[in-house]
Write a protein that binds this DNA or RNA. Sequence first.
DNA 1: ACCTCATGTAAACGACCGTTGACTTATCGG
DNA 2: CCGATAAGTCAACGGTCGTTTACATGAGGT
Lengths: 226, 226
Amino acid sequence: MVTLQGVTPVPLPFASSTGSPASPASGPRRRDAAKTRQLLLDAARRRFAEDGYAATTVRDIADDAGVNVALISRYFASKEGLFEACLKTAGEELRRSTGEVGLDGIPEAIARHIAESSAGSVAGQLALLLRSSGDERADQIRLDMLRSSAGRLAALAGDGPDRLLRAEVVLAAAIGITLLRTSTGIEPLSSAGVAELTSPLRDLVGALLGDGSSGAQAGAGGHHPE
Amino acid sequence: MVTLQGVTPVPLPFASSTGSPASPASGPRRRDAAKTRQLLLDAARRRFAEDGYAATTVRDIADDAGVNVALISRYFASKEGLFEACLKTAGEELRRSTGEVGLDGIPEAIARHIAESSAGSVAGQLALLLRSSGDERADQIRLDMLRSSAGRLAALAGDGPDRLLRAEVVLAAAIGITLLRTSTGIEPLSSAGVAELTSPLRDLVGALLGDGSSGAQAGAGGHHPE
DNA sequence: ACCTCATGTAAACGACCGTTGACTTATCGG
DNA sequence: CCGATAAGTCAACGGTCGTTTACATGAGGT
């Protein structure tokens, strides 16, 4: 057996090391509660987003993560606790990725989110927003996330007394597209890439939130800053 | 309230039982397989649309319908069979209600569907489109319904090579709004009536499917990229 | 009336679910 | 090196699920 030494000199309670490479050739996995926690979170978020809360079993999640089922109860107290943790981390990522762009960048940011949520492995934050667990706390977290996202969208739209309603329609469209892609596979929507999605989304956002001055033209919006 | 009458999916032994259709104080209910079937279908469609397939139990449906659980297996063979039957009837209603309007009428038709699906008791056809059961046949029915709806929408939009994609985006928006309303209750979207919904939907449909002449009066440049 | 069968009822079955407790094993401070 | 403790494993538990089976009963044809 090969044992690596000199790693993790300080025992961190939990360092969300999402950025760390997958390290597929780790072989005999060392005992690492933080890593196990993260593996469970990633697997759970994907399952919950794709199949919904009720259709997902804790054994599914544990198998995907490659850990024992009982560890879900240990680290997250319950399936509901795991779902709440998923919502929180998804909310953070969502806020981080959409908090820096202006109205002109929104369409492409949404398109990128949608496209990556299908192709990528994690993502699916948007789909999570529509997945209900029946738990009161989880539903409250979910509603807070939705309100926050809608509020930020509405803040970018200048005029109109119903700009919050319109922002929620934009949000609903984004979520609807994501769910339609992940759970039905209808074409050509499901295979559309960022470029193909950006065009209709630009029209959609422009028509709902644009005040006419922001101009729906962009084209050279440039690359997303990551 | 819902008027369930004139349903004859199976050869009725006697059609004269409609003399007193749904009198609530009818006391001992007469044995009527057709009526029982319809009660189950209505209850199931509502439950499936609101809570999703996996979160709905056959005992829930049977209790809502006021009939015995075993009758689900008798009349629909299984929970999956009941779900498929729900999809079929929902598809018929959806087609009937949107098959007579032109592009100009689409926004209000969608708004009406959405608003009634929240206030009314049945409806929810749109939400059903996003509920997956994991069953192959059901998913196929669902996909066919989606394709048909998207195709009819796209046929109303004249130009553009991506008009099918744009039609699917409109469909996704409508479904997303419905689910956001029924499963999160976010405001002001959830309480918006037909009138309030029609306005943003007109902009949305106009921007995605309109060719510029359909009266996109949003003030913003209604010109579409060519 | 009586037989027959469709309709509805009640109870149970096997399977799977989320969760728990006792047990094993690796890791580390002393 | 050696207990102490965290990290992980295993098997089982009560409960609920969808479904089936056996039974009761209303209703129409002859």
